[in-house]
Nucleic acid binder design. Structure first.
Lengths: 209, 209
DNA sequence: CTACTGTATATATATACAGTAG
DNA sequence: CTACTGTATATATATACAGTAG
């Protein structure tokens, strides 16, 4: 990122903040007013400077059509990402702050854009042998079926939710913790809420096992 | 997410895709043309339907000023996220596909928006005891200093890059693998390239240790 | 009546350009 | 000359509305 002078930095920041806040770009008049230019004629030359520095793209003769250029042109746009947002409906898994995690679709080709995905904070050590530790953020694809060996997020006996490995042999379902010191569950009633597709670790203190 | 009829779904998808692709909204004429409406007069009524369903926000009399409403109003905008993009400069760590990972700032309050962050794919099992396995995506904050016990990404002897735990006692620097079966490195020359702040796991096959 | 079409028009908006200060 | 100001104007764009099909 080349350095901008303070004036252009202010303009650039205004543009990015406006676009992030509104979802569309400011008009030249709005730019003039926000930056305190005495004339609207100053807007285009300043924008051209930013464009020359490859910070923005001006679409001539189009209204509110300034684009912010990302560092790389091949950066996936939002549409090419899968976003996991948290929900607040889990007994075993707390933490009510808002979280979101977005990753490139290329990282999870199995997920299509119609999938409903969410993130939960893991509580407990029942899955440490699968690399999911207490405090990790678990990325879940919402679905109501699962295959053997999937790691599922499920509602058990209408009572509690849990994250375990799903094993089905004939009609018998086993939920296996990935932790040698813990016991398997043989649920009478199970509702699969989702399948774990990823795990985001932001602390490495619990990682030692 | 309430269900939309196919016609409104098509319109909604066009709007989101256009905005994601261009960074600004389409004009009414562009909408007419894309959706095949015979008259531009059809655009506003259709948009109003979407707005009534709380899918978009129309800004009357403003050009290209349609906003997509997110599920939650408190969803962090792009500005509130930290984005890790991959780079292609690492001997020990391959994989040249483009990847990006964005997470809410609330998840990593220690990182400010001026930090340069990137993502690398982990190769090898030298950090499995810290929960970082072969194939995991390592989130790195670019910086050239580190504290004892940080997990660093560093260039050693001007020859190779590695990910290890950083220990400094007086002037003596030790790079410790988090894997009992591997040996520590005592580098003569070390250049710290970044500190590991997170790890994204998208496969659980290697997680068993 | 509903559900559109087609076009005129008002408004928003970017651009052009003559003028001015230093 | 540069670096602006101020304003007129062309263009982009959303809106209004009379007309039409069924």
């Amino acid at each position: 990122m080349k350095k901008l002078n303070p004036e252009l930095t202010e303009l650039y920041n205004f543009l990015t903040e406006f676009i992030n806040m509104h979802g569309f770009a400011p008009s030249y008049r709005e730019i003039q007013s926000a930056l305190g230019y005495k004339s609207i004629s100053m807007v285009k030359p300043k924008l051209l400077e930013l464009e020359q520095l490859d910070k923005i793209k001006i679409n001539n003769y189009k209204s509110r059509a300034i684009e912010i250029k990302t560092l790389k042109n091949d950066t996936p746009k939002h549409a090419d990402c899968i976003t996991f947002e948290n929900i607040n409906e889990c007994s075993a898994i707390k933490d009510f702050q808002y979280h979101s995690v977005s990753i490139s679709k290329t990282l999870l080709p199995s997920i299509n854009s119609h999938s409903n995905c969410f993130v939960l904070k893991m509580i407990g050590s029942s899955m440490t042998d699968a690399g999911i530790n207490d405090g990790d953020f678990v990325l879940i694809k919402s679905q109501n079926t699962a295959k053997t060996n999937d790691i599922v997020y499920a509602l058990i006996e209408d009572e509690f939710t849990t994250i375990k490995k799903y094993i089905k042999k004939g009609e018998k379902i086993t939920l296996l913790p990935e932790n040698k010191s813990m016991k398997a569950i043989f649920p009478k009633k199970i509702e699969i809420l989702g399948v774990i597709v990823g795990c985001l670790k932001l602390s490495f203190n619990n990682g030692k096992n």
